[in-house]
Write a protein that binds this DNA or RNA. Structure first.
Lengths: 157, 157
DNA sequence: CTTGAAACAAAGCCCTC
DNA sequence: GAGGGCTTTGTTTCAAG
């Protein structure tokens, strides 16, 4: 979590990488008009400082029997133990996201499973976690957009 | 969207790629005990058939002034035009996900912005979309897990 | 940040099974 | 059809300026 100074060239590189995580350093170098070794050094520093968190291969969940996405709001017993609940929720492989949210003490999790039957099984597992009071699921019918690309300001900070 | 037959070797390759989107074909080949050219051919077919959707570079939003994540439920006028609303929502760069959900006619969107002020501005923009009735936002305090890695069954289909 | 050199990987071809 | 081995091209990586 090092807070390095990010300049315009870093932002350019990050934008190119966000558009396609598989571009080679050589091609980034061509696009920004610098030598490949210079770009390599930048990318390495961005990775080391935690600004680049990693690279993910996006696999089609529909093609692989995980066609059902649901968002489940989970109310937990107020007070202590809330953090551990989040950790336990994160351990389920079918739970892709775990967010602790404001408002009433609750988590919002994104679940990706095969069908409604599997969702029911997952919700039942949630119920076995101690401080979990109740759950409220919203089934996704169509996903129009799903990305992690964040807009980067192209001026300096 | 070709429905090819996925065998165990494909699943192994996908698991390795999901764990690290930047591994080289050569290293995958070493791990699965096959020649690099064979793995390359598999990966290409997986990409072509849509099972591999792409590769994303994950950039730390906190490091780059997008520290606020919110989930906003958007009720829309029932009936026609619902799809266009989803498309319009997806055009906002700060809107990372757009899901059309069951229940009442509504979208669930994930928004990533700088602060609450920016969230307010985004919500105001949502309001200018014709069929949008009202919005309901949940602020994320802590994100415990955020991934797109789906668990792959290691037996054949 | 650039250059140049060496190690490595990608991608195409041809061969075998 | 699918994988193994080879070759060429391009990329990564390091050292030195």
């Amino acid at each position: 979590m090092n807070n390095r100074k990010i300049d315009k060239l870093d932002l350019e590189i990050l934008n190119i990488l966000q558009a396609d995580g598989k571009v080679s350093n050589a091609e980034i170098a061509r696009k920004v008009g610098k030598a490949p070794s210079a770009v390599l050094e930048r990318v390495r520093k961005l990775k080391k400082s935690g600004i680049i968190e990693g690279y993910e291969c996006i696999v089609s969940h529909k093609s692989l029997g995980r066609g059902l996405t649901a968002f489940t709001s989970i109310r937990v017993e107020e007070g202590v133990g809330a953090t551990e609940v989040g950790q336990k929720l994160a351990e389920f492989p079918e739970v892709l996201e775990v967010h602790y949210t404001a408002g009433r003490d609750s988590y919002l999790v994104k679940v990706r499973v095969e069908d409604t039957e599997a969702l029911q099984a997952t919700l039942a597992k949630f119920g076995t976690i101690g401080p979990v009071r109740d759950t409220n699921s919203t089934i996704v019918l169509t996903t129009v957009k799903e990305s992690r690309v964040i807009p980067l300001p192209l001026e300096n900070d």
